Amino acid sequence: MTDRAPLPLLPYGRQTIEDDDIAAVTAALRADFLTTGPLVEAFEDAFAGTVGARHAVACANGTAALHLAMLALQVRPGEAVIAPSITFLATANCARYVGAEVVFADVDPDSGLMTPDTLAEALRRVGDRRLRAVLPVHLRGDVTDLPGLAALAGAAGAVLVEDAPHALGTTMTFGNVAERVGDARHSAMATFSFHPVKTIATGEGGMVTTNDPGLAERLRVMRSHGMVRPQTSSGPGADPWWYEMAEPGFNYRLPDILCALGLSQLAKLDRFAARRRSLVGTYRATLAPLSPLVTIAARPAWSDPVLHLMGVLIDFDAAGVTRREVVDGLRARGVGSQVHYIPVHRQPYYRDRYGALDLPGAERWYARCLSLPLYPAMADADVARVVEALTAVLGG
């Protein structure tokens, strides 16, 4: 009698690459431009149309998108930017790239989202610094209270920049008005990532959407070294090679090869979104018997998310196991998981810079959170397998 072969690992997230995606990249490789060619603008136009924004500017990755947003707003050293502590490092780091100081906001302990109340508390800690921007994060794909946050930010003389890499395809309803993440109705800009575990993938890649033509132009200039071609260099007799740089920018361009993949993936967004929503519905039904030991992260009433992460909250103390034991036990059963996120205010760099902070919502979220596998190629049977493994590890 032979042992049964172990099941392949279900990662917490992964890309879905199909034959037409490969064909699109192959065609781009055979074309005249590998970078700074026509597929960049084509991807930008298609993305802007998909989310309902007037402008979309492609860039190298989601971190570059956030950095470009700070550069477009001309955030200066010593000014302040508010970011939630439950997020990836880049949300806070983009402010430091331009010399601004980060004020960390707490989050709702059950959703992980910045709220008007936690923003109001953070505003009281800005002090005499000029506040330039508030960076709400649409964690997992669920949307923050954009009108509430925008009103508070606006009263403080700042704008919102939505950190939205988790939320492509998410819709929401505020005041009976249907909206899409990325349409920038309540914000100056929204930023996206196309890392392989996100809703669509380009390998690496990012996008910034805005309705402000001035911001869009500055984003384009700053993603390409700060170079511009003055009007005087394009007239009769002008030197065709002439360019000028008023201030240093960065090489944050996204190549045509990756834009080709982005266009192919974007055409599948509705299918990817429907499958993610279906899998989340299966998770809700299958996880229900584990409540209250395991609950799904809270969804705001206005949010109809396309979840990037299947975030659950586990009462590890009540279960009598540590999170590390759960993670290791799941992996031994072929199920990957991840933690989103360690509170950024805990990181040594920020702790040394700002001292210890008391953000109880962020700590409560972190103490219970775990992300389970979620990606379009999963079968419903995979969800059952994940929940069966989780039940076993929790002693059910």
Rank of each mutant, 00 (worst) to 15 (best):
V335P: 07
M245G: 11
G141D: 03
G141I: 02
M310A: 14
D380V: 10
V51L: 06
H225F: 15
V137G: 06
V103D: 05
L215M: 01
V81F: 10
A158F: 09
L123I: 03
T295V: 13
L359Q: 00
G226S: 12
G169L: 10
L370A: 04
P6S: 05
M1V: 09
G206L: 07
A53W: 00
S303A: 00
G205V: 07
D3G: 14
D382Q: 10
W302A: 06
T209C: 04
A83F: 03
V25G: 00
M70W: 01
T2C: 12
A332P: 06
L370K: 01
R125T: 12
R220M: 07
R346E: 11
P376E: 11
G62I: 08
N61V: 06
A53V: 04
P240N: 09
V181K: 06
L357A: 11
L359M: 08
V197R: 11
E179F: 01
G182L: 09
A153S: 05
R353F: 07
A260S: 00
L269Y: 08
S291L: 03
R218V: 02
G214P: 09
G169F: 04
P196Y: 01
G281L: 04
V383Q: 00
A31N: 12
A72M: 06
Y283I: 00
G249I: 02
A42V: 08
D142R: 10
R218C: 04
H138V: 10
T209Q: 08
P236S: 08
V126N: 05
R129T: 02
A23G: 10
A319I: 05
E41C: 12
P300W: 02
H186Q: 05
W242Q: 14
G13D: 08
A267R: 15
I22G: 04
W242H: 15
P373F: 03
A379T: 14
R185F: 08
R54M: 11
G329F: 05
V326L: 10
F33V: 10
M378D: 05
G99H: 08
G203W: 00
A274F: 01
R124A: 15
V102P: 00
V280S: 03
L39P: 01
S234Y: 12
H166E: 14
N176K: 09
P196D: 06
L9C: 10
A46V: 09
A384Q: 15
M227L: 15
T118S: 11
M378S: 00
C259Y: 02
D328E: 15
M70Y: 03
C94T: 08
F316E: 03
D19W: 10
I17H: 12
E179H: 14
T2M: 13
D45V: 14
A356D: 13
L258A: 11
F33H: 13
I296G: 01
D108K: 07
I200C: 07
